[in-house]
Amino acid sequence: MVTRGFAGRDSGRDQSDRIPPGQHLVENFPVLTAGPTPLVETADWRFTLKIGPKPHKVWNWHEFNALPKTKMTRDIHCVTAWSKLNTNWEGVTIDDILADAGLERPTDFVLARCYDGYSTNVPSRDLASLKAMVALKYEGQPLPRDHGGPARLLVPHLYFWKSAKWVNTLQFTNRDEAGFWELRGYHIYGDPWREQRYSND
């Protein structure tokens, strides 16, 4: 349905091949968080890899930063309809985390858990083959607290609620267990190109 009198701004039409349906381009970096912004000191930071309920390996900040670093430039897409192009990240790929733990994909699904109690689920294959990382830097600087610092998950090919801020655990699960927003009406997978915003989209 064409809306009477609506033209839309010209910048919204730029690079439409890189902007998924229903999304619009932003230059700023909006912050959306369901609760207070946690304060996590790197001295206290721990990252745990679990298989089911059992911890398999734990890294402290120093140990985690000694893992191989990878840079990624990616477009990101938030379910609230903004997209941001060419964002620059640096961190440790999930492949490198698994290699350091001596594991190959233990199960088909992962539940990422965070310092603020947030969680989100991602199939293991979506984290493998350099598709995802635990990001430690954004635009060459330590990741700001508002954007999940000191460390967040980055899964840029899915809606950005999957890129969990303040991540502290990746838990491999046998079933696809719904996370925080997935329990509250959002799509279990969240592919922006298929506009999988809400449960039944």
Partner: peptide
């Protein structure tokens, strides 16, 4: 709610 506006050339803008 989400609101969706459509321009004559098919361009769509959505906001919550």
């Amino acid at each position: 709610v989400d609101i969706r506006l459509t321009a004559p050339d098919g361009y769509v803008a959505m906001r919550s």
